[in-house]
Design a protein around this nucleic acid. Structure first.
Lengths: 164, 164
DNA sequence: CTTAGAAATTTCGACATCGAAAGGTTCAGT
DNA sequence: ACTGAACCTTTCGATGTCGAAATTTCTAAG
């Protein structure tokens, strides 16, 4: 049994046998697995008529706990998009009555993005389906594999400076 | 020591203790590691005045072996972008004399994208630096870790149907 | 020989994103 | 108070991507 990366590595071995392309086995699979998993994750959201980024924003607010309020800067930090894109996204969520955007009365430079009751309910409901879908995506790995994979990825993340 | 995903998981545990969010430990780290690694990879190319997608195309042609020729359809399949984007990319590579675009004399529906001598030389040179950079990115993992990580990702890929 | 359909690529229009600049607010020092 | 620096967010212009329609060529059937 071979995956798509094996073929890739064979080609490199033939064309450049002098290079040690072993890191490509890891990075190539990491990149490819990421794409495939994100495709699966996206599949759930689109089946529910939602874009992944919408859940990203709603779930970040949900995770922050009551009163489910964060500033645009916080959302930029966690959602990995630029501030310009976030303005656009919040606009659309406001139009759907899923979040509100209000100026912080204590510091009028800031804005407060908050979940509406509809947004809170939707975020909770989608979180359940989303987690169930993620369980399904990983069902090819048993519990020990998942734990080991998580451990190794964490080690990699730490070595790359991804500490909170 | 905690990574950014631990904080994420703690927040979910507080807000929705009824959900088993363990798959997020794997998928969250997979996604995050992918982003960070790709940032590092991009760093090498931009330091050489090149975009990652340019190397993507050139390296795919290089890997295919002499005569270093593929059709746009082949390139679309491996580079994970749409056909419209590929037309654009090939245009720019042609302008830099790194590849040629010619109609296939045997089937004029097809095009033949080929490395020029300059493109071949550049692809070979960048491949060396790129591989060296990838070794550096993974230096936080020892050989056994890398092999185990590769094995687990491959198992995941196979379970998601990523067979060649 | 003609015509319909399939195949490969490009063009087109809409849209989302990014970096940079701008607009408005607060805070500290004077 | 006032000025300037720092901060947060939005706007603007450019760019790249996608899906769908269009273009050209090949193939097969009548």
């Amino acid at each position: 049994m071979t995956d798509a990366v094996d073929k890739f590595l064979d080609q490199w071995a033939k064309e450049r046998p002098d290079l040690d392309v072993s890191p490509m086995a890891v990075i190539g699979r990491l990149s490819r697995a990421c794409r495939l998993v994100e495709r699966e994750v996206k599949g759930y959201f689109t089946s529910e008529g939602m874009e992944p980024w919408e859940f990203d924003v709603l779930a970040t607010l949900l995770r922050s706990g009551p009163p489910y309020t964060l500033g645009p800067k916080d959302l930029v930090a966690t959602t990995m998009v630029g501030s310009a894109a976030l303005t656009n996204r919040v606009d659309r969520l406001v139009n759907r009555n899923l979040v509100t955007r209000e100026v912080d009365p204590e510091n009028r430079r800031k804005l407060l993005i908050s979940l509406t009751p509809e947004g809170l309910e939707l975020a909770n409901r989608m979180a359940e389906g989303h987690v169930a879908n993620e369980h399904r995506v990983l069902e090819g790995l048993d519990a020990a594999d998942r734990e080991e994979l998580s451990r190794l990825l964490r080690k990699l993340l730490e070595s790359l400076g991804d500490t909170s």
